[in-house]
Each structure stands twice: as C-alpha cells, then as structure tokens.
Amino acid sequence: MITSNKNFAIETKNLNLWYGTFQALFDVNLQIKEGQITSLIGPSGCGKSTLLRSINRINERLGYVRIDGDIEVFNKNVYDADVALVQLRKQVGMVFQRPNPLPGSIRENVLYGHKLHKPGKITRHQQDEIVEKALSQVLLWDKVKDHLNRPASGLSLEEQQKLCIARLLPVQPKILLMDEPCSALDPAGTAAVEELIWELRGEYTILIVTHNMAQARRASEECIFMLMGEVVEHSLTSELFVTPQSTKTADYIEGRYG
C-alpha cells in the first residue's frame, strides 16, 4: 500500500439503516483501521449488532431492511453491483453471541469453510495441517488434538466459541466481526477468549461488540461508543475511558445507563 499510515479496513459514510419504518442507524461515519481491534460499546438496542450485520450484508436476508449511504470494505463499496456476497462473507467472518458450532465433528467444523471455498480434493495430510493450524491459532489445539472426531457440541461453551473462530480462519478472512462473543461464557471462558482475540490482532482486523466495559478496555485498541443508533465517540481506547469527549460517553462508562 502507498501510505505509511494505517489503512482503513472498514469505512462507513453517512450510513442510515431502517427496519421497515424504524430507523436503527443514523448517519454513521466510521473508519476502522486495518489490523487493529476496535470495540463497539453502547447500551442494549443502540444498533451495535445492526451495524455489524450490515457490514457483511447478512441483514439483507430480512427483506424489509433499507440502507442509505456507503459501507466500504478495503475501499470497495460492498453494495456495488459487482460484489459477490459469497466473496464478501469469505473476507468478513462473523462470530455470534451464542457459539453456533455446526452439527458434526470438531474436524468437520474447521474444514467446512475451506470445503465451501476451495472445492476439489485435498489430501488427508493437507486437511490435517489446516485443522492443526486453525485450532492452534485459537489456542484450542492442545486440548482437542486427541479427539478431533468428537462432536463439536460436546465441547464447553468457551471451547465452542473458540472453534467458531477457528472455523473462520482456513478461508483467510481479512476482517472478523464479533457480536458479544463472550456474553455466554463464564469469567474464565471470557478471559480465555479475550486472550485469543488479542492474539489474533495484527493478522486480522477485528470489530468486536461488547457489553462488558472492562473487556473493551482490556482487549481493544480503539473504541466506539454508540447511543440510539448514532456514533457518539470514536477514539483510542486508552483515551475514551480516561478522558471521554462527550458527557454521554462519560455517563455510560460510569454506569449511568446500565
């Protein structure tokens, strides 16, 4: 790339979004830097999930969603006619609140995405490599390497969530969107998954929605605060929590919105 500055992985320009007649996002202008972890905080219902889900265009399925403005991923408007949804979702992986491993073994889960995007035979050995690499990246390999053929649903929630992240990696996405990935986990699981997310920094651009302010503080480099469908503040995490620019942000991080 040309400039030495960080590039933007995701950029939204005057993004407005309606569910039917209800407007959920108002003039959202965001620039998410490549290779960083950016966290998205705000009270429940403020549009965090909505924003996340419009980036990989999964919201469209609903039929009654209308969007106005631009969403660019690596400087390409994802709503351009020549953007293939399948390719977009390959580049932009998503992790959900509740771990959703697919029915099947741990191994099958990791290989699923790879099979989707690279049809054709690969040797057992190549498969093993993919599985080991992905599971190692999510710090799960040592734990499951001896029972890769067990059903994924038998794992603990924390392990399932890690597997759901691992499942995305073989197709080499550039961006990982995570919607409250730790909210179904206990504190130890949360810490473990946070650690893993921190490890992935640099290699992937990560946009993570969280309810947990301590988590945003610990595990992100930049932080965005949203309120009622609008972005109130976007700054370095270290600044946002210490010297918030807006009184609304201050109120929120001091727990005045719950």
Binding site: I58, R89, K90, N100, L102, P103, C164, R167
Partner: peptide, 26 residues
C-alpha cells in the same frame, strides 16, 4: 436450528450449500 444456517451463510455458503450440507442431513 436457525443458528446452523446463519453460521453457514456467514461463512459464505450459498443457500443450496447450506441446505445440502447442513439442513437436509439433520
């Protein structure tokens, strides 16, 4: 479960791939 379909779509599976590999077998 709807979560299975969602997981597939979010990995870039087409509808048919999702049906064929996840929905129908289950």
């Amino acid at each position: 479960p709807y979560a299975f379909r969602e997981a597939c779509w979010n990995m870039g599976a087409t509808r048919w791939q999702t049906i064929r590999r996840v929905v129908l077998p289950n």
